[in-house]
């Protein structure tokens, strides 16, 4: 019984590390994606100023911040 529990324990640790690695990879991609969205909104805001432009810029800035924060959270806490 203790052997089974030990095996299960190490299995779970491996699974946790695997999930963490996948999450970090996805979050890095997401951070790059959020920067690109931010830049696109900035560029389009200059090319085609609209009343909604500042709000979209604000939302995309928040999104970049949250994406970075979640990435740090996963690296540090997960």
């Amino acid at each position: 019984m203790p052997l089974e529990k030990t095996t299960q324990f190490f299995g779970n640790i491996n699974m946790t590390i695997g999930v963490k690695a996948i999450l970090v990879l996805l979050l890095v991609f997401n951070l790059v994606f959020s920067f690109l969205v931010f830049r696109q909104i900035q560029i389009m805001g200059k090319k085609l100023p609209t009343p909604l432009g500042p709000l979209l810029r604000f939302i995309s800035t928040i999104y970049v911040g949250v994406a970075a924060a979640v990435l740090l959270l996963v690296v540090g806490v997960f």
């Binding site: 996805l26 979050l27 979640v70 996963v74």
Partner: peptide
Amino acid sequence: QILIMLVCWYLFLVGFILYSFI
């Protein structure tokens, strides 16, 4: 850890919505 995974999932969802909208 489950909560963090949910946060990630909804972060991706918000990104998808934002991109679809812009």
